[in-house]
């Protein structure tokens, strides 16, 4: 169960795992996520979005960036290893329907969860415009896969090393200024990107949905650690989301909540780097 069938490194710190999980593959829909835990006794439970699934193989694809202790450990697993605990699919699936023109925006690793959603909108008969953003060309992922779906693909990099040198909000604003305006926008990426995408479309009244990735423990509604303020109401990302109306989300509060354990995590990562260095030293000293 949960065996890693294929592991690919997509960029310096982004990895793709194809994991044998036939039940999740069968039930999963765009927008849903899994909870991953590497070690039942002391491991942390973290949410990861399902980027893709292969029914024939009974596998799901996970794409993640190594940002903390658990993702670093996950990246250290090899093909043939198993992920000890994998729970899902969780969250409400994306509501996909034919709306007309849909702009799908993916920032950094956010392109991974965006992929099945863009695919869904395309299959539903929408014109799909995809905007992908990354700090530089090396950090861009899934370009070919997205190109295959998109009616129009716009790439933005912060340093101009590929595509346009701008933030994703620039082409988004241009699209909103055109007539007819896009009918719907989906933005997935770092919170700050999602916040500004929502701010960009707000004056144009283009409905804009975002997919939130908050701190979770159980992922099934039990802890409330993932709660966010949406339109002055408290919502749980795990059972009410992960997708919400971007114009209603209190991003500032969400970003603060994401930093709840920042100092502790930095410490954890520090030890982890230290452990890695020790492990390297030990390996070097071996004949």
């Amino acid at each position: 169960m949960n065996t890693i069938l294929k592991k690919t490194q997509l960029s310096d710190d982004v990895f793709q795992l194809r994991v044998h999980a036939p039940l999740i593959a069968e039930e999963r829909k765009p927008g849903q996520f899994v909870i991953v835990q590497i070690d039942s006794n002391f491991g942390e439970r973290i949410p990861l979005t399902i980027a893709d699934a292969d029914l024939r193989e009974g596998s799901i694809t996970l794409i993640f960036q190594t940002v903390g202790k658990t993702t670093l450990k996950l990246a250290a697993l090899k093909e043939g290893d198993a992920i000890e605990n994998l729970l899902g699919p969780l969250g409400r699936p994306t509501h996909i329907e034919k709306l007309g023109t849909v702009v799908c925006i993916g920032g950094g690793i956010g392109v991974a969860p965006l992929h099945p959603i863009a695919q869904g909108y395309k299959q539903a008969g929408n014109k799909v415009i995809i905007i992908m953003g990354a700090r530089n060309q090396k950090l861009l992922i899934l370009e070919q896969e997205m190109r295959a779906i998109a009616d129009e693909l716009i790439i933005c990099t912060d340093d101009g090393s590929y595509g346009r040198k701008c933030l994703v909000t620039e082409p988004l604003k241009e699209l909103c200024l055109q007539e007819p305006k896009p009918n719907f926008v989906v933005a997935i990426g770092p919170p700050i990107m999602m916040k500004f995408c929502a701010e960009t479309t707000r004056p144009f009244a283009v409905p804009t949905f975002v997919s939130l990735n908050t701190i979770m423990v159980d992922g099934t509604g039990m802890c409330g650690g993932c709660r966010v303020t949406v339109g002055n109401e408290t919502k749980f990302v795990c059972v009410d989301g992960p997708e919400f109306d971007g114009h209603q989300v209190d991003f500032d509060n969400m970003m603060k909540r994401l930093r709840s354990y920042k100092t502790l995590e930095d410490k954890a990562r520090h030890t982890c780097n230290l452990e890695q260095a020790i492990a390297r030293k030990e390996n070097e000293s071996k004949p």
Partner: peptide, 30 residues
């Protein structure tokens, strides 16, 4: 209520019990 440092008892206790966060040295869950 959504400030950093406000928890449900479920979350606080799950971190401490099931996830063993009391074992600061070994548990990954903060």
């Amino acid at each position: 209520e959504n400030l950093v440092g406000v928890f449900s008892a479920n979350e606080y206790l799950t971190r401490a019990n099931l996830m063993r966060a009391y074992d600061f040295a070994r548990a990954d869950t903060p």
